[in-house]
Nucleic acid binder design. Structure first.
Length: 462
RNA sequence: GGCCCUGUGGCGGAGUGGUGACGCUGGGGAUUGCAAAUCCUCCUACCCCGGUUCGAUUCCGGGCGGGGCCUCCA
């Protein structure tokens, strides 16, 4: 069954067929590495990682090329570097490394490549030069600007006409612009700002330039899928399209445009002024990365998702139930099975993860009810296959329960708990119920939930 | 002002022109020394007003509510 994806440009769900099944190309606008990334930054990373996994399963691991860039030239980076009196590379390398750590904690696969702006200065300068030569760009007060009126398709992606927009609605129109919607491709740098030499004077590229140049350099003139957050539709992706299509004689930049919706924080917009920005770096202190990933996937990627403590708690409970099943199936070797057809169909339907989660629930129910070893092995195989597609259930169940969040879970703790549980099990064998209950009470105080089984007791953190 | 998205039970969240996904919570039951886990079972919904239809939560129109974007932004 083919994969259907909602394409922002055509505003329809369409069957996805790559231009070349041997080389499916996908690009995601990645992080600007000037600080810790927040949970909202990771929604596209997790969602499109799931799509990456799905495409790899469909076309073969070697046939999918997924580029997620790192923006390492940006005014916010310059500001951070100036404040800390260091080179920008000190800032960008630090936060790129942290971003990769956070990504790994959310079980996000490394993309095929992570191109950087600083690594593509020549390509960007070349792109700007070509657009200048072709008359799509002009120089003004040391800047190079793209002239949006030179591209008749401008506004097609976001569905807005130039005349509908309010010039200066939010930001004052700069003096060097011929038209308010023209955007900067190259700008001069101030005295202490990072600067690169170019035919149009020393300076640095505008934000939109890097994606067009890197896609051209790494993936080709037309890619299959271009993805990002909803806020990037305008102007960022509109501007990328303008640059790339004008540089490529009108050849489309991407065949499918995918955009994820935003997270709300306790029903409010996440913003610095409201002080409700949640950094993944901080969330990971209280929650396992897999809980964050699961929570992000409980909603459909195009819909808004309300990020709350309840959502996280619910996600943790559900995952715990699922890992409980896997723990009970621990001594059964999974057979090699495909994920259930309904689960795959849900993901194929524009990455309908809530529907896929519903299928997962029935799968676990079936696994819990399995009587024979053959059934257990089959269901375990299906669970692991489904999990691999959405990046869940890839850790050892025992470690899930024993590391389960927070810093109190260290090794000595675990040994102490093991001791108490073993003592209680012995008391139960002796039918010394008073002693057994006393030990349970002691464990309750440690927020440990014990499960008695015929051949021993197991425990988890409550 | 323009453009886009959205409104489902106590909560989260799919889906559908006609038999009310799935999960959490709550009630009941099986099981258990007591529990936990597991299983079974029950309760509660489709923003409002028109239209189309034998029949609309689902399609169409209007209204109301919520959100996003209009050159920082996942």
């Amino acid at each position: 069954m083919s994969i259907a994806l909602y394409d922002t440009r055509t505003r329809r769900k369409r069957d996805f067929e790559p231009a070349n099944r041997e080389e499916v190309t996908m690009y995601l606008c990645g992080p600007t590495v000037y600080s810790y990334a927040h949970i909202g930054n990771f929604r596209p990373a997790v969602v499109f990682d799931t799509l990456f996994r799905l495409l790899r399963a469909e076309y073969g691991e070697q046939s999918v090329v997924y580029a997620r860039n790192i923006t390492d030239v940006d005014d916010r980076i310059n500001q951070a570097a100036a404040e800390q009196k260091v080179e920008i590379s000190v800032i960008t390398e630090k936060y790129a490394a942290i971003y990769r750590e956070d990504s790994a904690a959310l079980n996000i696969l490394p993309p095929s490549m992570e191109p950087t702006a600083t690594g593509h200065m020549d390509e960007m300068i070349d792109l700007v030069s070509r657009l200048l030569d072709a008359g799509h760009a002009y120089q003004s007060e040391g800047h190079v600007l793209f002239s949006v009126s030179s591209f008749e398709g401008y506004g097609k992606l976001s569905g807005r006409a130039l005349e509908d927009m309010r010039p200066g609605a939010r930001v004052e129109v700069a003096s060097y612009k011929r038209a308010p919607a023209d955007f900067v491709m190259w700008k001069p740098s101030g005295k202490d700002e990072p600067s690169w030499d170019s035919p149009f004077g020393p300076g640095r590229p505008g934000w939109h330039t890097e994606c067009s140049a890197m896609i051209e350099a790494k993936l080709g003139t037309t890619i299959d899928i271009h993805a990002g957050g909803q806020d990037l539709i305008f102007p960022h992706h509109e501007n990328e399209i303008a640059q790339s299509m004008c540089a490529h004689d009108g050849v489309p930049l991407a065949r499918f445009w995918l955009h994820n919706g935003f997270l709300d924080m306790d029903s409010e917009k996440m913003s610095k002024s409201l002080g409700n920005v949640k950094l993944v770096h901080d969330l990971l202190k209280d929650w396992q990365g897999e809980v964050l990933r699961y929570a992000l996937l409980t909603g459909h990627y195009r819909a808004p998702l309300d990020w709350t403590g309840e959502l996280l708690a619910r996600s943790r409970v559900t995952l715990g139930r699922y890992y409980g099943t896997l723990r009970r199936l621990g001594d059964v070797a999974a057979t090699d099975e495909p994920a259930p057809a309904g689960f795959i169909a849900a993901l194929h339907d524009d990455l309908n993860t809530p529907q896929a989660m519903a299928k997962l629930s029935t799968l676990f129910k079936a696994a819990n009810g399995a009587k024979t070893d053959a059934d257990k092995a089959k269901f375990k195989g299906q669970i692991l296959a489904a999990g691999a597609l959405i990046g869940l259930f890839e850790q050892d169940p025992e470690s899930w329960f024993k590391q389960d969040n927070n810093e109190t879970a260290d090794a000595s703790d675990n040994a102490h708990i093991d001791q108490l549980v073993a003592a209680r099990f012995k008391a139960r064998q002796d039918k010394n119920w008073a002693e057994a209950d006393r030990l349970r009470e002691q464990l309750n105080e440690l927020k440990i939930i014990v499960e008695d089984k015929p051949d021993g007791s197991i425990w988890r953190r409550g």
